[in-house]
Design a protein around this nucleic acid. Structure first.
Length: 307
DNA sequence: TTCCAGGGGTAGA
DNA sequence: TCTACCCATGGA
């Protein structure tokens, strides 16, 4: 096993722990996060089929110069293209390119965002591929978090490549691997239930070249067009599209779901009956284009609410 | 047993 | 665009 160290410089400010744990993704396999040592690890298939293991660490909010460090264990030493590939992946996963300063400038004018600013919160951990994020988002719909974790685990156990190592780790399955599965197997063994045809169609469209998820990363999408394109994919509805928009760095579409209402109404609409979703969207309108960050990174716990 | 989880597709209006 | 209805799964 060879070891390669790769380093990069995220946009300032950057806090590795905040970036890793900003939302629940770090709890989903094949990610593993050690909160004590603050190391995020996962096994990764390279385009050539080689399996590597990535261990990420990074700077804390108050360090003068932000840094991200990837320790890569691979069967053979990484060549330049392998290093470039891993570099691109780790920076994508940690969302290091996002400039949070405009959001902080706005947030500094109101209370409730002191923790977010102090701890450099505002990034959302992404999976190495958009396929993985699309599947995981589909696995969060109309179910509990415990079951989401179970579905992702079952997909990895059933269709992910073995990563070696002493704990029987596996990679997240490629689109090709899931495209070859039967719907029945995804329903039962993958625990996807009625989501199975959605994941299967997604995997098959990608494998056939009918759908290129990476096109969604292009910077020239308007949020409204991107959302419209996401909604055309089977299994992606308003909630899932909003989650994916956030992961893709579009924060100017606030998705109001049952959880949003549970947090926002008692805090900002006390005593009001019949608060509509439109009322909540209007409440956040002057945060444009950071509505989603304003909602997500408000210090709900600091106000007695739980999140 | 029944309900429901930070939904989504479809038919029908 | 909106509403009713159905869709698997598993924990409470």
């Amino acid at each position: 096993m060879q070891s390669t160290i790769l380093t990069s410089t995220p946009k300032s400010p950057f806090d590795f722990h905040s970036a890793a744990t900003g939302h629940g993704w770090y709890q989903l396999a094949p990610f593993r996060y050690d909160a004590e040592s603050r190391v995020l690890t996962w096994p990764q298939v390279l385009p050539g089929g080689e399996i590597i293991r990535i261990a990420l660490t990074g700077s804390q909010a108050h360090e003068r110069t932000p840094w991200l460090r990837a320790e890569v264990a691979s069967p053979q030493a990484l060549d330049q293209s392998g290093r470039d590939y891993v570099n691109a992946i780790v920076n994508w996963v940690m969302a290091t390119e996002i400039d949070l300063q405009p959001f902080y400038r706005r947030a500094a004018q109101v209370s409730g965002y002191e923790t977010a600013i102090d701890q450099a919160q505002g990034r959302f951990l992404r999976s190495p591929t958009l396929f993985e994020d699309f599947v995981k988002v589909i696995c969060t719909t109309n179910t509990t978090w415990a079951q989401t974790k179970g579905m992702v685990r079952a997909l990895i156990d059933g269709w992910g490549q073995e990563a070696g190592g002493d704990q029987g780790e596996r990679c997240f399955p490629t689109a090709g691997a899931l495209a070859g599965a039967s719907e029945e197997a995804l329903r039962q063994r993958g625990r996807l239930g009625y989501r199975a045809p959605y994941v299967l169609e997604l995997a098959r469209r990608i494998t056939s070249g009918d759908l290129d998820l990476d096109a969604f990363r292009l910077p020239d999408w308007t949020t409204i067009d991107l959302r419209r394109a996401l909604l055309k994919i089977k299994g992606i509805g308003p909630y899932a599209a909003a989650s994916l928009l956030t992961l893709l760095g579009h924060y100017d579409h606030l998705a109001v779901d049952s959880w949003t209402r549970k947090l926002v109404i008692p805090r900002f609409f006390t005593g009001q009956e019949q608060v509509s979703n439109a009322d909540i969207i209007a409440f956040y309108a002057d945060w444009h284009p950071y509505q989603q960050l304003a909602y997500w990174y408000y210090d709900w716990e600091g106000t007695g609410e739980t999140s």
